Computed example of a mutant assay.
Amino acid sequence: MATPAAVIRAKEEGGLKTAIFAGGCFWGVEGVFSHVKGVTSAVSGYHGGSKRDASYKRVTTGSTGHAEAVKVTYDPSVVRYDELLRIFFAVVADPTTLNRQGPDHGSQYRSALIPTSAEQARVAKAYIAQLGKAKLWDKPIVTKIEKQDTFYRAEAYHQDFMAKNPNHGYIRRWDRPKVEALKTLFPADYTATFRKN
């Protein structure tokens, strides 16, 4: 779905920045952001729970407080945080489904923004409000802004999963279409080069 440009633009200076996004299975979230110009890395991991529970086996139970999330490092002189938000809401996650994305159910698949600065928090709040007023979806937006906590990097086999497994059934059905949507809706932001971690 096409989303509007943010009215409130991020004001970020001083080199690379990081932001954390949760939008269902981290394979697709990482895959999309790895194809965005200005993104230097996209790392799959866990956010919202304890170190003890930061493993795929435990997170998939849905009882750890963690969300599958992706830590995105980007150059704001190329792509601003508000532009990343626009991409997130357009192609990464359905912001109207609570604790669910596609075929995946549970709080670990929730849609959430985890700002890493006061400026990101300000812009995220404003953009969610802007989208809510625009009524682009039939249902209300349930994407939450969560307080930053420790981000735990996921197991090695989850990193760059889309690039390593392009013919995996899940990737073909659920995640490749997101990258194609990025290419179609945001051609100026798309790069065919995959940012490997």
Results as ranks from 00 to 15, higher is better:
Val36Ser: 10
Gly15Ala: 12
Leu85Ala: 10
Val70Asp: 03
Lys135Leu: 02
Gly102Cys: 05
Ile87Gln: 06
Tyr56Cys: 00
Asp82Cys: 14
Glu83Phe: 04
Trp27Val: 03
Leu85Ser: 12
Phe161Cys: 03
Lys57Phe: 13
Val79Lys: 07
Ala126Asp: 12
Val78Pro: 02
Arg153His: 00
Lys147Ile: 12
Ala93Leu: 06
Val39Gly: 05
Val36Met: 06
Leu85Asp: 12
Val29Met: 01
Arg153Asn: 00
Pro115Arg: 07
Lys139Thr: 07
Phe161Ala: 06
Val179Tyr: 02
His158Met: 08
Pro140Cys: 05
Arg9Val: 13
Gln108Tyr: 00
Val123Leu: 11
Glu180Phe: 03
Arg122His: 11
Val39Met: 09
Ala118Thr: 15
Tyr109Asp: 01
Gln108Asp: 02
Lys125Thr: 15
Ala188Gly: 05
Tyr157Thr: 02
Leu85Pro: 15
Thr193Gly: 12
Gly45Thr: 01
Met1Asp: 13
Arg176Met: 14
Val59His: 01
Ser44Thr: 14
Arg52Val: 10
Tyr74Thr: 08
Ile114Phe: 07
Tyr56Ser: 00
Asn165His: 13
Ala90Gly: 11
Gly106Leu: 06
Ala188Ser: 13
Asp149Leu: 10
Ile8Arg: 10
Ser77Gln: 13
Phe26Val: 00
Gly24Tyr: 00
Thr60Trp: 00
Gly106Phe: 01
Lys183Tyr: 07
Lys17Asp: 06
Ala118Leu: 15
Ala42Asn: 09
Val142Leu: 09
Gly132Trp: 12
Asn197His: 07
Val32Lys: 05
Gly102His: 02
Val78Gln: 10
Pro103Leu: 03
His158Ser: 02
Thr191Glu: 10
Tyr56Ala: 00
Ala163His: 14
Glu119Ser: 04
Leu16Ala: 09
Phe161Val: 04
Gly28Met: 05
Asp94Glu: 14
Ala154His: 02
Val92Gly: 04
Gly62Ala: 05
Leu182Asp: 07
Lys57Arg: 14
Asn167His: 09
Pro187Asn: 05
Val92Arg: 07
Ala6Arg: 04
Lys135Gly: 04
Gln148Leu: 05
Glu146Thr: 03
Leu85Asn: 13
Ile20Thr: 15
Phe89Lys: 15
Leu113Gly: 13
Ser50Gln: 08
Glu13Phe: 13
Leu182Pro: 10
Ala69His: 02
Gly23Ser: 06
Ile87Ser: 09
Phe151Gln: 04
Met162His: 11
Gly38Trp: 10
Gln108Gly: 03
Lys17His: 14
Ile114Val: 14
His158Lys: 03
Phe33Cys: 03
Lys125Arg: 15
Thr60Lys: 15
Asp104Asn: 04
Gly48Ile: 01
Ala192Cys: 01
Gly62Cys: 07
Lys196Met: 12
Ala124Arg: 05
Val142Phe: 11
Val7Lys: 11
Ser63Gln: 12
Ser41Lys: 15
Lys133Asn: 09
Val179Glu: 15
Thr73His: 09
Gly15Phe: 06
Val79Met: 10
Asp94Gln: 11
His105Asn: 12
Val79Pro: 08
Tyr56Leu: 02
Asp104Ser: 03
Lys57Cys: 01
